[in-house]
Computed example of a mutant assay.
Amino acid sequence: MEEEKTESTIKTSGATTPLLLSVPEARKKLGGISKWSLYQLINSRQLESIRIGRRRLIPQIALESFINQRSREDNA
């Protein structure tokens, strides 16, 4: 799989994935959970986020890690 990295996206086999997701984008990727639930995950440090200016952003890799961790816990 060929990857081309830019400042804000990763291009993998023709598809471009942003490195950072907004709160609405992250909510959508987590199955449409509520904004409150997402902030609970962030505040409890279960989901990593960063702040740039006034924006709260979730790294794509942190979202993938969270999903993988939850998947392992549910299958244990």
Rank of each mutant, 00 (worst) to 15 (best):
27 R>G: 00
11 K>L: 11
30 L>R: 08
1 M>A: 08
35 K>V: 09
1 M>E: 02
58 I>D: 01
73 E>N: 10
63 L>H: 08
52 I>A: 08
64 E>M: 12
75 N>Y: 13
64 E>I: 14
39 Y>T: 05
57 L>H: 03
27 R>F: 02
26 A>F: 05
70 R>M: 15
34 S>H: 03
40 Q>C: 10
45 R>G: 02
5 K>R: 11
47 L>R: 01
9 T>A: 00
58 I>V: 15
74 D>A: 14
6 T>Y: 10
4 E>N: 02
49 S>C: 14
37 S>L: 12
11 K>W: 01
35 K>A: 12
75 N>W: 13
28 K>W: 07
59 P>Q: 05
16 T>D: 07
72 R>S: 09
35 K>F: 07
17 T>R: 05
13 S>C: 01
43 N>D: 13
4 E>D: 01
30 L>E: 02
23 V>L: 09
62 A>H: 05
65 S>A: 15
58 I>L: 11
29 K>P: 00
14 G>W: 03
31 G>F: 09
27 R>E: 11
42 I>S: 00
42 I>F: 00
76 A>C: 11
25 E>L: 05
18 P>R: 12
62 A>P: 10
62 A>R: 07
60 Q>F: 15
60 Q>T: 10
41 L>F: 13
74 D>Q: 13
59 P>R: 07
60 Q>D: 06
7 E>Q: 13
12 T>V: 15
23 V>P: 02
45 R>L: 05
10 I>Y: 01
32 G>T: 12
63 L>W: 06
69 Q>V: 04
60 Q>G: 00
64 E>N: 15
40 Q>Y: 08
68 N>I: 07
21 L>T: 01
39 Y>M: 15
67 I>A: 06
6 T>V: 09
65 S>E: 15
13 S>Y: 03
4 E>Y: 07
5 K>T: 00
1 M>H: 06
11 K>H: 05
43 N>W: 05
27 R>T: 08
13 S>K: 12
55 R>G: 00
34 S>K: 11
28 K>I: 06
19 L>D: 02
48 E>T: 04
18 P>Q: 11
53 G>M: 00
66 F>Y: 15
68 N>R: 15
33 I>E: 04
56 R>Y: 05
51 R>W: 00
3 E>A: 11
20 L>K: 06
59 P>V: 02
51 R>N: 11
12 T>W: 03
66 F>G: 06
69 Q>F: 10
8 S>C: 02
57 L>E: 02
3 E>M: 11
26 A>P: 04
41 L>Q: 06
68 N>L: 15
71 S>G: 07
18 P>G: 02
29 K>Q: 13
66 F>T: 04
10 I>A: 05
17 T>L: 07
48 E>N: 02
13 S>V: 03
27 R>S: 04
55 R>P: 01
3 E>L: 15
42 I>R: 03
50 I>T: 11
58 I>E: 02
76 A>Y: 13
54 R>L: 14
17 T>K: 04
29 K>E: 12
5 K>N: 03
2 E>Y: 08
22 S>P: 10
75 N>L: 15
53 G>W: 02
48 E>I: 08
15 A>Y: 03
3 E>T: 10
54 R>N: 14
